[in-house]
């Protein structure tokens, strides 16, 4: 990890606004990503954990400028991604790519695999014709697919193979950074392990950085050096993945950890289930968003939103329990 981060996300915010209701429509806004700041070093994997709807995927899409942001900044190697001109953005896109959750939807069903993988190279003038085909063969080999895949269509492959193709396409331009949006959640457990091993191998071989989005703590622990926990659009805790999952500071991280299945029959009794579902992001709770589900909530939690404070070097948490200094 060098000192200058490869990716620096600074107070990134995304608000979805819709008009709902009849006969008098009301403007409803959802802060899907609420002032999120994260950094990622070269060759590092940062896990983003949270329940569905907490803004994990939106964060990735805004950082990639697939969705327009509503505030904050994203810097890749110090360069402002959100302010880049269309031409410059095209060049920046070469360096950051995305792998999607559903590999069936991520590939154009009417395009042969060879064409899918060669197209980005042609568009960016990296290679064309026979040279592109040679590179595509190498990519297929790298992700563990036979060269015969070239002339086939996505529907001829299994889910795991399609995910390999999706990964190969993300690698086609030789990126430094990959946003992996739940890349193994749609796959069988046995296939998950293969894909994770492939990603870990690619990460080491190509010195790739990953923003790895998942709701599966086991996957995060296996793949990521650091992790960030999101709740209703906000980051509530960050830190080294092992430490964060072994000794959670934030009550929500603790809840996530305790509600993950443990592969030990004796431990099942110890599993405590927490009451309640995540509140509606349209009308989030006041103060700390987590207070309605938190066993330690106080009046202060209901009134004031805690900010993310570094407790020990490398570990930050947004919780009043751990930052008494902010009680003023």
């Amino acid at each position: 990890m060098s000192d200058a981060p490869l990716l620096a996300i600074d107070r990134l915010t995304k608000v979805f606004v819709t008009r709902r209701g009849f006969p008098i429509p009301r403007t409803v806004s959802v802060r899907a990503v609420d002032s999120v700041s994260l950094t990622l070093g070269r060759g590092e994997a940062l896990g983003i954990v949270g329940e569905s709807g907490c803004g994990k995927s939106t964060l990735a899409r805004v950082a990639l400028r697939l969705l327009p942001p509503d505030g904050g900044g994203v810097r890749l190697d110090g360069e402002d991604v959100l302010a880049a001109s269309p031409a410059r953005l095209r060049q920046l896109r070469v360096r950051m790519q995305i792998v999607f959750q559903d590999p069936a939807s991520a590939l154009d069903p009417r395009q042969r695999i060879g064409c899918s993988l060669a197209e980005p190279m042609r568009v960016h003038g990296i290679a064309r014709g026979a040279a592109a085909i040679t590179r595509v063969r190498a990519l297929l080999d790298e992700v563990g697919l036979p060269a015969t895949a070239l002339d086939r269509f996505p529907h001829e492959f299994s889910g795991g193979q399609r995910q390999r193709i999706g990964i190969a396409r993300a690698l086609a331009l030789g990126p430094d950074l990959i946003f992996a949006d739940e890349p193994v959640s749609a796959l069988d457990v046995s296939v998950q392990a293969q894909i994770l091993a492939l990603l870990a191998d690619l990460k080491a071989r190509r010195n790739l950085s990953f923003v790895f989005i998942s709701h599966d703590l086991g996957v995060i622990r296996y793949f990521c050096q650091r992790a960030a926990v999101m709740y209703l659009g906000r980051v509530v805790e960050t830190g080294p993945a092992d430490a964060l999952l072994d000794t959670p500071l934030h009550p929500y991280t603790d809840l996530l950890r305790r509600s993950s299945p443990v592969p030990d029959p004796a431990a099942a009794i110890a599993m405590q289930l927490q009451e309640g579902e995540p509140p509606s992001p349209i009308n989030p709770p006041s103060g700390c968003h987590f207070h309605p589900r938190c066993p330690h909530a106080t009046d202060h939690c209901r009134a004031v939103a805690p900010s993310l404070v570094e407790i020990t070097p490398g570990r930050s948490v947004a919780c009043h329990l751990h930052a008494p200094a902010t009680h003023t």
Partner: peptide
Amino acid sequence: ERDFIDAGRALGFSDMRIMFAH
């Protein structure tokens, strides 16, 4: 709604290419 449209944008394809080639 399909991800391959976003994939095309992330790969730096032009809107014309996405609309008429994909």
